[in-house]
């Protein structure tokens, strides 16, 4: 059993990572970051925390990418929080499409892409998939590759199907995938125009303007200082009167520039940028 990790040890690790690989984990929420590191120690069978430090000090970029994949939380599901997807289908998207010929959507921290498929399916059923430009980003290149492949575990499809049904999907989710080698292969035509790209919310700036940004259950892994910084990036990346959605138990109220947003739906955490 490995000794409990101390906060000072975590600081040493984040400093080392910053120096060697220019990734900054210094502002990650402590409790979950510590748990992810503890998990890596067990998964890779490190004998001690110092052994991990030594490895990070000498490893190559490829190994570090694997490390990143283990640090970032990639548990997700299609149509997570079905009531949110109903709100999106019945209010947010129709509102946006009433005022605009085309709209653009950013999935920030898209993970393995389930949320992107949920969006594409919703848009398709509203018969407006062609009017929407979607950009999906994540810090983890390996998970972006998974998102591009759109092959999910069959075992998860039961939950996904249930969520889809509760989200008032028009058909049955079977319509959108084929079973192949024990995997649910999603219908790629849904995402043929989606741009998947690497983007680090922690260190990178805005790269375009959007009508809708989804960043659900991503900022919970950041501390308040980093949340403030990321919200500024989102603010810059939104047109006036466009929407930002966060996870159902997240809140912007403690962020510095919260006053530039108004709450549209508190239950589903839908915010609107109302001030430049």
């Amino acid at each position: 059993m490995i000794q409990e990790i101390e906060i000072t040890q975590l600081r040493t690790l984040t400093e080392l990572i910053k120096t060697r690989f220019n990734y900054d984990f210094g502002n990650y929420a402590m409790s979950s970051f510590k748990r992810r590191i503890q998990r890596i120690l067990e998964l890779y069978k490190f004998s001690s925390f110092d052994a991990l430090l030594e490895k990070i000090n000498t490893c190559d970029k490829k190994y570090f990418q694997d490390f990143i994949s283990e640090i970032t939380v990639n548990v997700t599901e299609m149509f997570r929080d079905p009531s949110f997807w109903v709100e999106l289908r019945e209010n947010i998207l129709p509102n946006l499409l009433m005022d605009n010929q085309t709209i653009s959507i950013w999935h920030a921290g898209c993970s393995s892409g389930e949320e992107v498929y949920s969006m594409a399916i919703t848009l398709k059923e509203l018969d407006c998939l062609e009017k929407v430009r979607i950009v999906a980003t994540d810090v983890d290149m390996a998970i972006l590759q998974k998102a591009r492949e759109g092959a999910y575990s069959i075992k998860n499809m039961e939950l996904n199907a249930k969520n889809y049904e509760r989200a008032k999907g028009a058909f049955s989710i079977d319509k959108y995938y084929k079973e192949q080698n024990g995997k649910a292969m999603m219908d790629k035509s849904l995402v043929k125009d989606v741009i998947y790209r690497e983007h680090n919310l922690v260190s990178e700036v805005s790269f375009g303007k959007f009508d809708l940004i989804l960043c659900r259950n991503v900022m919970i892994y950041f501390n308040q200082a980093l949340q403030n910084q990321v919200l500024k990036v989102f603010h810059e990346s939104l047109f006036k009167n466009s929407y930002l959605i966060v996870g159902s138990k997240e809140s912007l109220i403690w962020c510095e520039i919260a006053n530039k947003f108004t709450v549209v739906n508190n239950e589903e955490k839908v915010y609107k940028k109302t001030k430049e």
Binding site: A29, M30, S31, S32, R35, V73, V75, I220, G247, K249
Partner: peptide, 18 residues
């Protein structure tokens, strides 16, 4: 569907981890 944790600074930390 969230883990509830306590973080330094006497605040809650939620997670959607496994």
């Amino acid at each position: 569907n969230y883990h509830l944790g306590v973080d330094i600074g006497n605040t809650f930390a939620l997670s959607t981890d496994d």
